[in-house]
Design a binder for these strands. Structure first.
Lengths: 200, 200
DNA sequence: GAAATCGTTTACCATTTGGTAAAAAGTGGT
DNA sequence: ACCACTTTTTACCAAATGGTAAACGATTTC
């Protein structure tokens, strides 16, 4: 069978992770879980693979089973900026589904993902009455969290930002290149190296 | 009639502003508009009044008819930080309705607001089928915009940040004290004064 | 195992920003 | 018009950060 996107059916254990995640936001019965599972596909990425390139449309909903993604863009000075990371057990969707991506998505480590097309994802509301509510809760919470994190990046000094990053993402530090973390924190890698030395 | 909250029925012209705003996100018929209008109350604030204080619950939905609000908190160093401004024709709701506010809301100028209790706002979904969808679109869009703005605050230098602020909020510069803008941009007011002199 | 590559650290100096303080400009009240 | 008060600007110096480059360490490749 031809499979140009390297996508496979999702196995039971993987799917359970996603379902457990969704169940935090609302109840689902067995039948509804089967409906969701039926639309899910699995996708693997190698370290440094680009999952989505800037300029292209991206209308999928992605759950990270294993690995770390980063969402990036280039700022006014042409520096590559990591806007945020998406790590294990987090959902990601593009808020601007109908516009070409201004950002690109890259695998920081090898990744295992569960992927839905936006259409499949949305169609679940036809058969699961609470689906829109659940989906909105999920993405709203994610947005609020991202906003809070970025707010603290603006109002704190570089050292505090790094320490907060360590608290919020304790599992990322040793798996993500320092330069990515630096650009996420809004400082140069030299500054971050200096800070790291100071706080160690 | 006792009116401890200084709230009044909303007049027609004011209500039209809000309805026009909501209609960007979905259709409403006359009857539905009447339902919404019936739940709205008007509230006025004087410059520097605190609308919501930190530590208290806040479960209202607020539309700014006139004036500017700012949402603030204190950072680790004890500095007062303006997290964002809410100006004319924008809706604001607390994403953490069930938790005491960590931020406070202050009137930067005299303000005229339309206010809904969260309960009234939510109850509209009982009579307007598309209400949840409309409301989610409104707040999701607001969150995404705020996130994009804050992202550029992290990745650009102070001068670029100020110029971007001028572009995004051309009507705010002359109505908001420089110190508020500085804390929003993540710099001291001296730095902002210097930048302002440079770019003028 | 040597060479090449990549990521990180260090060093140097220029630039930017912060902190404290004082002066200047603007605002409101009497 | 005057005073008191707030906001903004300016100045000075200290501290933090950026830019360029080189050195170091770890990993990969042949």
């Amino acid at each position: 069978m031809v499979n140009p996107y390297n996508q496979t059916i999702v196995n039971f254990a993987s799917m359970k992770e996603l379902i457990d995640y969704i169940l935090q936001f609302g109840n689902l019965n067995k039948q509804q879980i089967t409906l969701i599972t039926g639309k899910a596909t699995e996708k693997e990425l190698r370290k440094d693979d680009y999952f989505v390139e800037a300029g292209k449309l991206f209308d999928q909903v992605v759950f990270v089973l294993d690995g770390i993604l980063r969402i990036c863009y280039y700022n006014n000075q042409g520096d590559e900026i990591t806007k945020y990371f998406v790590d294990e057990s987090h959902l990601f969707a593009n808020p601007y589904k109908n516009e070409p991506m201004t950002e690109y998505i890259q695998a920081v480590t090898d990744c295992k993902l569960i992927v839905f097309s936006q259409q499949d994802w949305d169609e679940l509301s036809n058969t699961i009455v609470s689906w829109n509510d659940i989906a909105n809760k999920i993405f709203q919470k994610a947005l609020v969290e991202k906003l809070d994190r970025r707010s603290s990046l603006v109002s704190e000094d570089a050292t505090t930002r790094y320490l907060t990053f360590l608290e919020k993402f304790p599992t990322l530090v040793n798996r993500v290149p320092l330069s990515y973390i630096a650009s996420y924190l809004g400082i140069t890698q030299q500054s971050l190296s200096r800070i790291r030395k100071k706080v160690r």
